[in-house]
Design a binder for these strands. Structure first.
Lengths: 356, 356
DNA sequence: GTGAAAGCGCTAACAC
DNA sequence: GTGTTAGCGCTTTCAC
């Protein structure tokens, strides 16, 4: 019987076939082949016989049936709305993926990628029995949706900052966004900058992480006695198309702090187009220091969050939850550091501040 | 009853619960809620009643049970051994992922990532009932393994060049590696280069794609009357640690053709370290033109393969196979083009060849 | 129109 | 030690 692609596909054999062939009961076969320790009371000889037959018949356990029966799938879902266009986004996501995957694989779980979720019925996509738990890269921030999620049959963790009204008994893994922003501002102020532009990204400006970075920026400025004006905080497109216009009528800002690496690199590109020399005429700092930042020109000074570690920790905590171990902590925050590269320097005519 | 993470988890309801609550049979509920057209002969009023109850009880079908029953999972597996360290590899893989994912999601299939496969028992990882089909990013090249795979209960496609002894009734999606290599050589020769180094990557040097690129390189050289010496083909580490040594005692090669973008960029870096000016002292061409090549310095001239398209086509063909439509073609080859950037130029003292 | 019943492939409690 | 049995949640044929 020829199959569509010309292969003769054998549907792999079942416990029943092996039992018949070996002349024993199905349960004997089950015990020998997939048995969990204790209940495996089968004589060595029959056991061997069963194993032989299983090999002969090319037996592969049907994981679907096992999962249904045991209500455990050894599979974790990753809700990752950017999938399908990861290459367009910040490199950050690739590291996130790596971090989640390597922890999962180490523990012999599989990874299932979930495309966009129906926000009205998040459970429909998540509670269908196929996964033991879920990691959210960008959880819907509305409290109502989160609450609906909390009555889900499976545990989940969010791999981002908690939104303002987040429940306290839900796991959030994030970096110290505010602290990271402070690092950047301190660095710039240390170089002598007294007025900076904070750039958010359209469609991302309300995410908890973006807001927390903005919060840190404002706070740090205040603590340096810098008065932030309304026009010092803007929301631009990912390509930073607004740069030229901003540059033409900019006030006395001498530095830009961009909420992520991707938009920061766009700004670098736009600056070059506008013949603005970085860091001589303008300093630029990004958030998310990745190998990518080594390749921009000039190399991008950026705040580093330990994303691979965080992603691994998210997976780790989720597996704990799945396996019945309560998390040591619900709100897990990782410290940031600053990678100073070549895109920041003293402002023209500025002088380093005393505390630098 | 408090759960590990403090949530009260409702295990979502089943057909049976809805049937009980609604006072109808399980099969009636099944027909109304998940029924496929024809067999849904239920009075409008009971149907509505059932739907109401289902909503009230927050019903979500158990896909595991459905899949087991129908032996269809609407899930495709991607065997991607690099997962967990994608960020270390060529950007190529990210585009591949995007291409596969977007096609799959468009057709409402899900993506399951499979980490390393047991080469002795490939079926164990692949034939366990969880997937309807599999895409291989790097299929084991041994004929024996492939043959074992061909008796798998589910169809598969390979997203790379066929190995020398590949069966002709298995789908391979690849780019015209030899043609791409020829493009690179033609370009270099056109600029005046008469002797080039071909760089393979350790652990990857025997893959069908690498071998095909090498083949194209040799062939193109021959067709230009260039005599390739043994020492003109080398295998280096991904970081191109061997560069300095090679440079010290190199013959009269004036250009390097690297088998992928990643190692090409390492070569660029090593050249800079060794104070070798690219393209003045040395021209460099890579394979896999991605946005990454825009960021190297100098920007990397590279052969472009339409990887996103190829990945989409792989997914597409696999879904055809799954849904019973035979593929129009087993060996699908996509043409390459050359993106000339700044890492190639005339050799010192060389002059463009007449055919350029 | 409706429901009883069989069974997808597997596990585990229980009886022998 | 070994086999029987009762499901996991679902679909579907077939009587009524």
């Amino acid at each position: 019987m020829s199959q569509p692609n010309g292969n003769s596909r054998k549907t792999s054999s079942t416990l029943r076939q092996i039992a018949d062939e070996a002349g024993v009961s199905i349960s004997a076969v089950s015990k020998v082949l997939n048995g969990r320790g204790k209940s495996v009371r089968v004589s060595p000889s029959t056991a061997q016989h069963i194993r032989d037959v299983a090999i002969k018949l090319n037996y592969v356990p049907n994981v679907l049936a096992q999962s249904l029966r045991m209500s455990r799938t050894k599979t974790v879902g990753l809700v990752f709305e950017n999938f399908g266009s990861i290459s367009d986004g910040p490199e950050y996501y690739v590291h996130l993926l790596d971090g989640v995957a390597s922890e999962l694989f180490k523990r012999h779980y599989r990874l299932m990628i979930l495309p966009e979720i129906d926000r009205q019925h998040p459970l429909a996509s998540v509670g269908d029995g196929r996964m033991d738990g879920v990691i959210w890269c960008k959880m819907p921030p509305e409290r109502a949706t989160i609450d609906r999620l909390r009555s889900s049959p499976i545990p989940f963790v969010a791999l981002h900052a908690p939104p303002p009204e987040a429940p306290t008994d839900t796991v959030f893994i994030s970096c110290d966004n505010a602290g990271g922003a402070r690092l950047a501002v301190d660095h710039l102020v240390g170089l002598g900058h007294r007025r900076m532009l904070f750039v958010l990204e359209r469609h991302e400006e309300t995410t908890p992480d973006a807001q927390a970075r903005l919060g840190g920026f404002l706070e740090a400025c205040t603590s340096h006695g810098i008065d932030v004006q309304d026009e010092d905080v803007v929301t631009w497109s990912r390509e930073a198309d607004e740069f030229a216009h901003w540059h033409r009528k900019r006030g006395d800002q001498t530095a830009i702090f961009a909420w992520n690496e991707r938009i920061a690199s766009s700004i670098l590109r736009r600056a070059a187009e506008a013949k603005v020399s970085v860091p001589n005429d303008l300093s630029v700092v990004g958030f998310d220091s990745t190998p990518y930042c080594e390749l921009t020109s000039p190399r991008l000074t950026a705040v580093r969050q330990p994303i691979r570690l965080m992603a691994g920790q998210a997976a780790h905590t989720l597996l704990d939850l799945i396996e019945g171990r309560p998390p040591s902590q619900y709100d897990q925050v990782f410290a940031c550091t600053l990678d100073v590269r070549d895109s920041t320097g003293r402002p023209r005519g500025g002088r380093p501040s005393p505390q630098s």
